[in-house]
């Protein structure tokens, strides 16, 4: 049995919840986590890259010199790949790097990633942080809380229950801090940040769902 410590916004431990890692996944599936992480990283790629092939480079319509008699190698276009200012022989085209791991594996990977963080003791919870920024976004509130936990400047994923717009706004200017709704949890997002903090609501919902 592993425990998840619950902190208040001042960084003081106020309670804990017992969580059986086996309920998340029976082991940390490293190979699966690797696949899920690679898929997630690939999905991040925009794929907006492009170079021009010879037909796309402007100009080059006129044959540079006559076919025979000049003493020079025959050339048909000033935009051939071997010419300076010519097109690329093999171009880079815009493309979609996204690929799916099977849906069942995806779900399993998410739970496995949570088990990993739980075993590491890197999974904690916070009570009232979403309420503390509930009315008005305040980066300093979140920053202070993270510093108190010794996580200032460290990679952290905050998991909220339901959309918490102000939590997003309050962490937007903190490097290496992500916010994600619990229902959008995925292995890639968990693995990307070494520390994982659930809001109380998200933790309760997670425990209830197991």
């Amino acid at each position: 049995m592993a425990t998840v410590t619950i902190y208040n916004t001042e960084g003081a431990a106020t309670g804990s919840v017992d969580l059986d890692p086996a309920k998340l996944d029976r082991e940390v599936r490293k190979a699966l986590l690797k696949e899920a992480y690679i898929a997630s990283q690939d999905a991040q790629r925009q794929g907006t890259h492009k170079t021009k092939k010879r037909s796309e480079v402007a100009g080059g319509g006129k044959k540079p010199w006559r076919q025979k008699g000049s003493g020079r190698a025959r050339q048909g276009s000033t935009r051939s790949p071997q010419w300076g200012g010519g097109g690329h022989a093999k171009t880079v085209e815009p493309r979609d790097y996204n690929w799916d791991i099977p849906a069942g594996q995806k779900r399993l990977a998410t739970r496995s990633a949570l088990r990993l963080r739980l075993e590491e003791g890197a999974l904690v919870a916070v009570d009232g942080l979403d309420a503390a920024v509930g009315t008005e976004p305040r980066t300093r509130v979140v920053a202070k809380f993270l510093t108190k936990l010794g996580l200032g400047g460290k990679g952290t994923l905050l998991v909220s229950e339901g959309h918490q717009g102000n939590l997003h706004l309050s962490t937007r200017n903190l490097a290496k801090v992500d916010v994600l709704e619990r229902r959008n949890l995925n292995a890639g997002a968990v693995l990307r940040r070494p520390h994982l903090i659930f809001t109380k609501g998200a933790l309760d919902a997670l425990v209830a769902s197991l």
Binding site: K30, A31, L33, E35, Y37, R192, P194
Partner: peptide, 14 residues
Amino acid sequence: MSLQDILSTPTGRK
């Protein structure tokens, strides 16, 4: 376990 540990796990990916 660091991310590197996970990424260095053999998976059969060629």
